[in-house]
Design a protein around this nucleic acid. Structure first.
Lengths: 156, 156
DNA sequence: TTTTTTGTTCAGTTTGTTCTGTATGAAGAT
DNA sequence: ATCTTCATACAGAACAAACTGAACAAAAAA
C-alpha cells in the first residue's frame, strides 16, 4: 500500500528539514515553526500556526518572537487584516548563514575580550605560570582563527 | 582587594573557554571537562577528573567516552599505570574544526538523502503540486550550499 | 583460584526546559 | 467611554536531560 498523501509528504518534509534548521541552534519548536511557515504560500497568523501545529497560541507567540528577533521570519502587513502576519524568509542560505555567522562572531568576540581581561590579570604572576599563560595565548589565538573562518563564510 | 589567586584565574579561564566549546555542540559538562584536561600538564585518570570537577566517576566516564568518540581527547598509556589516562588534543583549531565540519557534513548529507527520497515520492503528484516541489528543490539546494561552505572550512 | 582494583550499566532522583491556561495589557470597533 | 479582539507575562504542570550510587563485569595482583 502506497500511503503517501500530500499531507503525509508535507509532514515528512517538515520533520526532515526541521532537523537541519535545529543544527543552526534553534529549538525543535522554533525549527518546526519556521519550516511550516516556509512551506506556506501566504503569511500566517498566530492562530493559524497554533491550529496547524497543534500547539497553544502562547507557544507560537514566544517562538515567533525569537525567530523574528533573529531575522529568520518577517512580520508583514496586509490591509484590512488586524492580526499579526508572519512569513519565513525565503532565501534560505543567505538568511541562515548570516544568522549563524553573526551568532558565532558575537559570541567569539565577547569571549575573546573576557579572556584578554584575564590575560592582563595573569601577567601579575609572570614568573612560574608560563604554561598557563601559554595555554591562554593559544585559546585566544583559537578565537581569532574562529572569527577569521566564520567571517569568510559570509563572503559568497 | 585583589582577589585573584591562581586557582581563581584558572577557574575563570575554564568558565569562559567552556562557553566557546559549547558552541561546537558539546554539553556544558563535556565542555568543562575538555577545558580542564586542556589546561592540565599531564594526562588524568577518571578519579582525578571526578575529584577536580566535583562530579561522580560515572559522569566522567560518560563524558570522556563522548569526547573520545569525537576525537577531542585521546587515551594514552603510561607504563606502570593501570588506570585509563586521558589528555586533550592540543591543536584546538584543527581538532574542533574537523569535528564540527564532519558533524555538519554527515548530518546535512543524511538529510539531503532523505529529502531526495521524498522528492521521488512527490513526483507522482506532478500536476498541481508545483510550489511544494519548488520549495523542496530549494531546500535540497540549501543543503548543497551548506555542504560546499563547510567543506571549505576545512581547507586552511 | 580468590581478592582487588577499575570501568561501565542501570534505576532512581534531581534539575532544567517547554508547554499550557489564566490573567493582564494594548489597540481597534461601536 | 465601553466592549471586543488580539498579543504577551506569569505560574504551575508535563516532559526531558543530567547526575549519582549501587550492582555488575573485566582485568590485574596475590
Amino acid at each position: 500500500m502506497c500511503g503517501s498523501t500530500m499531507e503525509n509528504i508535507t509532514e515528512k518534509i517538515i520533520i526532515e528539514f526541521a532537523k537541519t534548521i535545529e543544527m543552526f541552534g534553534l529549538t525543535p519548536a522554533e525549527a518546526r515553526l519556521f519550516v511550516h511557515l516556509y512551506l506556506q504560500e501566504d503569511p500566517q497568523t498566530l492562530d493559524e500556526m497554533a491550529e496547524a501545529l497543534g500547539k497553544s497560541k502562547t507557544s507560537m507567540s514566544t517562538s515567533i518572537r525569537s525567530l523574528s528577533e533573529s531575522n529568520l521570519v518577517n512580520r508583514v502587513w496586509q490591509k484590512g487584516v488586524r492580526k499579526d502576519l508572519y512569513e519565513a524568509n525565503t532565501q534560505l542560505y543567505k538568511t541562515f548563514m548570516h544568522y549563524y555567522v553573526n551568532k558565532w562572531l558575537e559570541a567569539s568576540s565577547l569571549q575573546k575580550d573576557a579572556l584578554e581581561d584575564i590575560q592582563k590579570e595573569l601577567q601579575i604572576f609572570q614568573t612560574d605560570t608560563s604554561t598557563l599563560a601559554d595555554h591562554l595565548n593559544e585559546i585566544i589565538d583559537f578565537h581569532k582563527q574562529i572569527e577569521s573562518s566564520f567571517r569568510h563564510l559570509n563572503n559568497d
